[in-house]
Design a protein around this nucleic acid. Sequence first.
DNA 1: CGCTAAATTGAGTAATCTCAAATCACGTGG
DNA 2: CCACGTGATTTGAGATTACTCAATTTAGCG
Lengths: 241, 241
Amino acid sequence: MNAMIHPRATMALCPYAGKQLSHALFQGLTRREMHRVEQGFSKETYASGDPVPRDPDAMPFLGLVLNGALREDVRDARGERRLFALSFAGELLSPLGPRRVGGQLTALEDTTLLTCARDGFDVLACEIPRLQLNLLHLLQGQIVETQRWQTLLGRKSASQRVASILAWFHARQGGKGELVLPVNRAELGQMSGLTLETVSRQIRALEKARVIGLPQPTRVQVLDEAMLNSLTGDALARRAA
Amino acid sequence: MNAMIHPRATMALCPYAGKQLSHALFQGLTRREMHRVEQGFSKETYASGDPVPRDPDAMPFLGLVLNGALREDVRDARGERRLFALSFAGELLSPLGPRRVGGQLTALEDTTLLTCARDGFDVLACEIPRLQLNLLHLLQGQIVETQRWQTLLGRKSASQRVASILAWFHARQGGKGELVLPVNRAELGQMSGLTLETVSRQIRALEKARVIGLPQPTRVQVLDEAMLNSLTGDALARRAA
DNA sequence: CGCTAAATTGAGTAATCTCAAATCACGTGG
DNA sequence: CCACGTGATTTGAGATTACTCAATTTAGCG
């Protein structure tokens, strides 16, 4: 994307930045359609820590994370703000329409976001049926993803939850040998429904078991990927006919 | 999308049964569009306990529960079948596309289901933009619903989970004074991530606290709705500016 | 009236949380 | 470059919660 310096939350709009937009939402579109899409969407870049100035209540929108990562915080029953979800490159940013009260998006690293007002998207989708199909595919993926969390939160032990989250980050970051935890222990706990102490103990246990290395608290080397995956408790349970 | 006879499962197909199809998915459609819709969807009825003979893996479809209720079972990591979700009248039946391996739908009571193959729906949605908009609204609602479960499973105590589930059934069944639990204690436990014993103890505790009455194990009288709601732990947390 | 499955209850155990203290990581100023 | 301060992380110990296993009671049904 291009140069863009900003103190806090400056944000540049560039309807078409010269490079191809690449995202599953645009799969299979013709060049003409892509051109149309580029007019309807706007691209924004955020530096690490920048809030995304959007109020989905006021104006529903569709967001695509082109690269980087975002965190979504919600306000819980007691009014506390807590980490609710993370979105990585290639993902759809939250669903659409009004989000939970008090939701807030923040860039975790340098992030490029492609957004489009909900109304505008409806128009585009009518013109480009393929766009609609792609959106449904993405939403489906999102729901499957949510089900994974439901399993995690409902039926897993602390060690399985932590292994699952690490494996998830690992996969999201391309399966490299080393991954970076974009959130601290307390936030890992909020995501997994555990306390920060329990998260810490489980991570250390994985380190002591030589499943992971921990050169720094936020850096994790995956030493034994197979073991990590098996510790998630997600059996290979395919076909049990 | 027509005639199809099934071995087991009493189920009648009636492309158009004379009565108006009423569902949020069809809100705002013209009569002409409704006619088109009626051709694309098929209506099926199931008696209590009937399985819904669908393999979403083989043929993705969209399902609307017109009345009655369905349960969805999935196969967990150990290959065990367990209750995953319930769908009541007016709801969208699972999302779309491939479901988890081993998923199975079963009618909990006399149920009318309106279904449409995924491909057919895409065609319809192109013709009728409003249909697509409505679907997105429904999906959004579904995701919000899933988030509610995520909160329940991740951050609630046993008593809050049980209160939440009862309050949820209560709301789903129209908020009458008495509600019927369509599932047993073990299944309530599977939904809420608790054991059947814990569910039982919590329900009895609510009874002893005179929040609910329990004339029969599957019948619950809501004696103190306000108390029940407060016990869910979902604070009224609006605006805390 | 049995029979069977569901539900309840009890007692002991295991896992996780809470609270508190110690250690570590890292940026700042000397 | 190093001491210092702050916040994150780790560790420990005891309290709680929910689970497990077992026994008992209840509900539904022929």
